[in-house]
Design a protein around this nucleic acid. Structure first.
Lengths: 245, 245
DNA sequence: TGAAATGGTTTAAGGTCTATACCTTATATC
DNA sequence: GATATAAGGTATAGACCTTAAACCATTTCA
């Protein structure tokens, strides 16, 4: 009486080299590895980096450009530049997030499991250099001249560093994937001294727990930290008024 | 003092359509969606299923054949057939697992986080039909005429069904990915009445917790269950003697 | 004004994929 | 035994993707 399950073989769609390059560059921009107005490597250099032809790179860049993520300028001092996310595109994203809130929740659910798990392992394995890197990020995040965008970028780097410190590629990849999905939402977080202070405390406590090698405390702090941010995002996305900060 | 992290842009390697098809078929065989001696769909049908040309399908099948996973027979009643995993290839896998034990541990670490998380959600969302499916699997697994291979196949299906019941595609995908990596190791598990009984009890208790909607208990049972299986695998892989069951 | 750095364009060659048709082999059936 | 059938095996032409190399166009700056 062994039941044969549905076979689950699905259509495959070919993935072009330019698709891979597009995905990677889009991810880098979403994760703020390139900040606003920052210049991407020249097309010829990207071709070398990705081990692809220049034409293929250009195809990926053309897609980024058509989505309004980058802008190209010809001539000396020209290049491909990351466009700032405008207030309008934030609002556009917010409406889209409302429509697709269910799929956003799925990612957050997954995050609530994966990131605490990564922190648990990281507490057992993190090294001095990695701890110092985290401390530098947290210190930079509380500086008065830290811009909103820099603040958001630092937040990404802290969480990715913790995942990396887990010493486990699966956590590393998963956190990266999760972050790429939810970062546009996280970027909607209000930016105020109060938010900065809360964020600072959570990260500071996390680092203390990691440094102490306290895996369970690290896990719990991470859980509460991202639970709190998920709630803040939910409130923000469904706020009636448009927001200023 | 914002430190710029290493940019992490890496070479991309193009992935051919036949690679996608190969991956999917290999996964299906590893997850025992096709059992030993079972016939895959005809090349022309696979081409339709995957929305690819027959030549491309044949390229994927050729790779499967060269790895010894399938065998082709021409003529009427011919086709592509899944080859049984022999005792020898088990032992070969075991040696390979010893060499790559560190990377195997990484997957198990990830599993210990993801599958309990999936069970936690599943307890809140599983439906009657899914519970009945699980009960059928568990009942089949304890039958006296359940072969070793059928037993291993049912185990896969139970865990994938729980992941599916989480109602979250990320858990679903992750558990599938994890299982594809570790299933060759899990297939090394001894097969005895004692093992069957232990396995039966764990799955029965899990289903009871899921049915009761007890998320925390479901998570804990799943955690202990897979912790136990990881330990059994470790012992098996590093056992000095070769084994018979 | 010209050198340098960048994006923009063209061309030729090779690889991958598709569609279609036809060949070969083995089994079942008349 | 002949024939039909259901597979895998093979061949060809065309569309599309990718590469490599060369050259063009634009802008800045010395």
């Amino acid at each position: 009486m062994l039941i044969k399950p549905a076979m689950n073989l699905e259509q495959v769609s070919p993935k072009k080299v330019s698709d891979f390059i597009f995905d990677r560059l889009e991810e880098a921009i979403i994760l703020k590895e390139f900040m606003s107005d920052e210049q991407l490597p020249a097309e010829r250099d990207l071709a070398t980096i990705f081990n692809a032809s220049r034409i293929t790179v250009r195809e990926a860049l053309a897609r980024l450009e058509s989505l309004g993520l980058v802008e190209k300028r010809v001539g000396a001092k020209g290049g491909t530049f990351v466009l700032p996310i405008t207030r309008n595109s934030h609002l556009r994203n917010r409406d889209e997030m409302r429509r697709n809130w269910d799929s956003m929740i799925e990612v957050f659910e997954y995050r609530m499991v994966v990131e605490p798990g990564a922190a648990y392992l990281a507490a057992q394995r993190i090294g001095k250099a990695e701890l110092q890197e985290l401390r530098n990020y947290v210190a930079a995040s509380i500086e008065p001249d830290c811009t909103r965008e820099a603040f958001r970028s630092i937040d990404v780097r802290i969480h990715l560093s913790v995942a990396r410190a887990s010493g486990n590629v699966y956590f590393d990849h998963a956190v990266r994937q999760i972050r790429t999905k939810i970062n546009p939402a996280l970027d909607l977080m209000p930016y105020s001294d109060r938010v900065k202070a809360n964020n600072y405390e959570a990260h500071r406590d996390l680092i203390a727990a990691l440094e102490a090698g306290d895996a369970e405390r690290s896990r719990d702090i991470m859980y509460r930290h991202i639970e709190h941010s998920a709630e803040a995002i939910r409130a923000r996305v469904f706020a009636d008024e448009s927001f200023e900060d």
